[in-house]
């Protein structure tokens, strides 16, 4: 009986310790992204039609990220959403009437993820 409680106490002590490690942002991933650069944000500005990219944190798995596609798909002007989990980038195809940056950022937050910034596509 005592051994059971001892093991349970160890589980309880170790796991919150692991969980509390992530206190700071890991910018190493973000700094190494070659394909795009961050754009100064004017959140009331409408997105350009065509492909836009947004940097998003917390896209922890293929299936979790599908939730993001479903929620963003409800925003008027969002034609399709593609995810690059490796870079933490959401690629959004926009048609007219284009949504504002704020609308897209809000949809990302509503889906349970953290919007970081919009990116300027090379050659775009």
């Amino acid at each position: 009986m005592k051994s059971i409680f001892l093991i349970a106490a160890l589980v309880g002590a170790v796991l919150p310790g692991c969980a509390s490690q992530p206190g700071t942002d890991s910018h190493d991933h973000l700094a190494s992204q070659p394909a795009a650069s961050a754009v100064a944000e004017n959140m009331d500005e409408r997105l350009n039609t065509g492909l836009n990219e947004a940097r998003v944190n917390g896209l922890s798995c293929p299936l979790c990220a599908e939730s993001l596609s479903a929620v963003m798909g409800r925003v008027e002007g969002v034609e399709s959403v593609k995810l690059d989990l490796d870079r933490g980038v959401v690629i959004i195809s926009i048609t007219k009437p284009a949504p504002t940056r704020e609308q897209v950022a809000s949809a990302i937050a509503d889906a349970g993820f953290t919007f970081v910034s919009f990116l300027e596509r090379d050659g775009g």
Binding site: P22, D25, S26, V56, N57, G58, C61, L85, G88, F113
Partner: peptide, 9 residues
């Protein structure tokens, strides 16, 4: 919720 990296949370 603290999303501290592209897939880290």
């Amino acid at each position: 919720r603290n999303d501290f990296g592209p897939i880290e949370t």
